[in-house]
Design a protein around this nucleic acid. Structure first.
Lengths: 205, 205
DNA sequence: GTCTATATTTGGATAGAC
DNA sequence: GTCTATCCAAATATAGAC
């Protein structure tokens, strides 16, 4: 097929715009990243941008969609199997969370999320459903299984999940802030693992 | 009772500017709150603003200073006394945190903090020292005392403090988001108390 | 201290030539 | 598809009259 389609990460101008925009939005937010700066960094004139996107908003929306496209989710079967072994479930979940925290692209997207969270209602709603509810659901399924198997003390699985995820989020936020200013995250590097240890000691029977 | 102009410290136009600016900054962030809008809401022309403040930045800095002026801090004696009783220490600390979460002015300042956190290096540093370190210090003092008194299981007090504060922060963030969109916070209203209960069960001996 | 008027810059967006 | 040229709006800020 000689018709050359655009590759996802291809070298077409459009995807170049997207890459630059993603970077600038995650650094300066929606208002701070001007179409001018984007065009300049892409290496074209502002007007040329509008051959690829209707307007600035459209570029942002395409970038924003990636924020919640995080790859990780465990199948219901995986959850059950791991949960039956107790702590390994928490460990696996946490290590996936840690990976996202240190992954360059996800790091940028997380920063963008934090920047725009209080400015964009849709992002707030997605934060609640995609970031929070989804994780609570996965975790509480695991905790429920553990309670049934008498691996952990009995209580409300959702509540336990809430307690668990909140600390992961806080660690991620701190690491993101420190890395943004190129500060050392050494003292937080093992915080995820420590959290799993502490938490498991807190709930195990 | 005829003088009804001034509610708080200082008065006249300057403090009115500050009040309006605080409100607009906390709604729209630094970039989103224009001098124009501030002047309009105050009821004067833009140019008149500059008789009171050198520039926009100066207004923002005065507002931003309030973010970390949260009233609550326990004296070292209070901490020790409360910590010797165990759970009441956690309860008191948490209730103060909850009060700040639902206090209108602190709610606005917290939103502003979240908006500007990723855009302002100084705010990030203050967040780390004032929001995080200060709380960790207070809490770990309490946990240390509890460990010495064999009220709770022995481990790193700073680590325990980290686990405790992270959930408080997450609850606060969620409530702030929900309230911003005028959504119900009913299901989170007692989350603070539940956290204390859960956590105490996790560490008590 | 506030106003009007204005300077200056920045940013989003379009028209039309190539 | 990209460029030049241009428009328009909004924003920060200053000068000088009252």
């Amino acid at each position: 097929m000689s018709q050359n389609k655009e590759f996802k990460r291809g070298s077409g101008t459009k995807s170049k715009i997207l890459n630059v925009a993603r970077n600038l939005f995650s650094l300066y937010g929606y208002k701070g990243a001007s179409v001018r700066k984007i065009a300049a960094e892409v290496g074209i004139r502002e007007s040329a941008i509008y051959n690829h996107y209707k307007n600035k908003e459209e570029i942002f929306l395409e970038v924003a969609r990636e924020i919640f496209s995080s790859p990780f989710s465990l199948s219901s079967d995986e959850i059950k199997e791991l949960a039956l072994r107790g702590k390994p479930f928490l460990h696996k979940f946490t290590m996936q969370y840690k990976m996202l925290t240190f992954d360059k692209k996800n790091e940028n997207m997380f920063r963008l999320l934090m920047i725009e969270l209080m400015q964009n209602k849709e992002l707030r709603e997605q934060f609640m459903s995609e970031f929070h509810d989804k994780n609570i659901k996965t975790l509480s399924e695991g905790f429920f299984t553990m309670m049934q198997s008498n691996l952990i003390r009995s209580s409300d699985p959702m509540m336990v999940a809430y307690e668990f995820i909140s600390t992961l989020f806080y660690i991620r936020l701190q690491i993101t802030i420190l890395k943004f200013d190129s500060n050392s995250t050494n003292h937080l590097a093992t915080q995820f693992e420590k959290h799993v240890d502490f938490f498991w000691e807190s709930i195990k029977l």
